[in-house]
């Protein structure tokens, strides 16, 4: 499957990936509205981690043996047949956080308001290139 590759040596820590991810997963899909008009603000599913000069954007790796999927008690976490992405069916999610506990990368977030739905990278369902990759100004993320 196609995966998002991280080239940490070129990550400039601008967080445009986070911003664009947040917008993509907002209700309006419009940047200014997503930030200033939507309450609660949606969560980015990619997170930039920083320490000293090093930084990188990290999102779900869609592992082959995805522990979040294996440990989900409802079957809400599933693998999309077409893209092989690990997705979360928010209707089935009960917010038990077994997925968070299982993820070795710590890339699953709890939704701020509902505290019910795990938010994680969905590879921008339907997009040819995920928005974090598309909007990385320095090609520190690649989809290949």
């Amino acid at each position: 499957m196609k995966r998002i590759r991280i080239h940490e040596e070129y990550c400039i820590g601008c967080r445009l990936c986070e911003i664009n991810c947040l917008v993509k997963h907002s209700r309006s899909g419009k940047i200014i509205k997503a930030f200033r008009g939507e309450e609660p603000r949606s969560l980015p599913r990619v997170r930039v981690e920083e320490e000293g000069y090093l930084s990188f954007a990290l999102q779900c790796r869609h592992c082959d043996d995805a522990p979040c999927l294996e440990n989900c008690p409802t079957g809400a976490m599933y693998r999309d047949e077409e893209t092989q992405a690990v997705l979360c069916d928010e209707d089935k999610c009960i917010g038990c956080w077994m997925c968070i506990m299982s993820c070795p990368l710590g890339v699953i977030q709890r939704e701020r308001k509902t505290k019910k739905v795990a938010s994680k990278c969905d590879l921008c369902r339907g997009e040819e290139i995920p928005v974090c990759v598309k909007n990385c100004p320095n090609e520190a993320l690649a989809y290949e």
Partner: peptide, 8 residues
């Protein structure tokens, strides 16, 4: 608890 899995 977001980083729980990392510790585990």
């Amino acid at each position: 608890i977001e980083k729980a899995g990392v510790y585990i």
